[in-house]
Amino acid sequence: MPLFKKRLIKLSKRSVPDGLWTKCPECKEMFYKKELDDGLKVCSKCGYHFLINSKERIELITDSATFEEHNADLYSGDPLQFKDSKTYPERQKASFLKTGLLDAVVTGVAQINGVKTALAVMDFGFMGGSMGAVVGEKITRMIEHATEKKLPLIIVSSSGGARMQESTLSLMQMAKTCAALERYQKQNHLFISILTHPTTGGTTASFAMLGDIIIAEPGAMIGFAGARVIKQTIAQDLPKDFQSAEFLLEHGFLDLIVSRLDLKKKLSLLLHLFEKK
């Protein structure tokens, strides 16, 4: 499998976009790729936040070259031999080729303006950021590591929820991650949960909503049930900003909405304020 091995070596290389130009879906402004990347993929005209992958997110919030990845060798089998129009391994392979990742979360330890922090960053590019046993296990291990080493913890979510291809094995990852958080939070360490577009389903209904501080990116879609299902169930129109970060802030489920451009600064400020003597 030389082709795969070669891709594996390039694991950290950012996937190259197709064209040179990107249109902002919000204000329709055209951007040169490089210009967009330099601006942290935030539209300079309207502030729209484009999706970024886990590597870009880690680069964005951590101090240069301090990120040390943990448990990078975990991958899922196909425990239920799940097959719809494609098999589960086929879907995993497609996601691997797209992202260079073995599953939908990257975990490790890094410095954020000098504060050593345990970090888990989900990647929407891998099967829609869905949570199966690998995501659950890596996040749980990171929480346990933070508990043991008395580190603050940041989890960045971007996920469609529990992964159907692992059915109840996925569902139970919700309980597993929350169990680890129960121990971690009892020890009075700070857990900051960052919700990015989109964060839904079983991910929202587990660790994502348990942050001591919960931050969302502007415009991010955050919810439990899908808007389409809700609309069908209640047979009425939903508010225009339904399940947006702004909607959640208004209803009391977020502490802050922070622009990507200010995220590192805000995280650093909070980590220092909550730093234990």
Partner: peptide
Amino acid sequence: FRKMGVFFEG
């Protein structure tokens, strides 16, 4: 609950 889920390492 800690034990739930199947995965491989390496």
